[in-house]
Amino acid sequence: MNKPVFLLVEDDPYNRDILREILEDYADCEIVETTNGREALNWLLDQSKLPNLILLDMMMPEMDGFEFLRHLGNHPQHDQLRVAGVSARAHSHDRDRALQAGCWRYLTKPFDIHEIESTIAAALTN
């Protein structure tokens, strides 16, 4: 069985590091780290395999989460992609906005490790 693949899109190196640690702790997996939407898109387009979950920071320089999601809509296999939005904006309308833009889940910063773990679990079981 292939290792699960997670795509991290996060500009802050420390936050990226924490997410990586949590992911690694949870499962033996392959983690791809990108620092903005464009990098992530480029990686996705180069790949034949799909990540099991994309952890996407919504606020990033160059290409933010929302723009990334718009571009992702053009991906040939976009309906098989799961994106968990990650943001420091915790209000319900921020959540609604992200879900409307195409996020499957919405995680708020600072991280709740249990929440992230349950999201990973959901992504892996489905």
Partner: peptide, 24 residues
Amino acid sequence: VANMSHELRTPLTAILGYSELLLK
């Protein structure tokens, strides 16, 4: 304020995240 809070949350995420990881 929203931006400020975002800017404050990002480093806080690191502080809290690392402490959580360590404590775990």
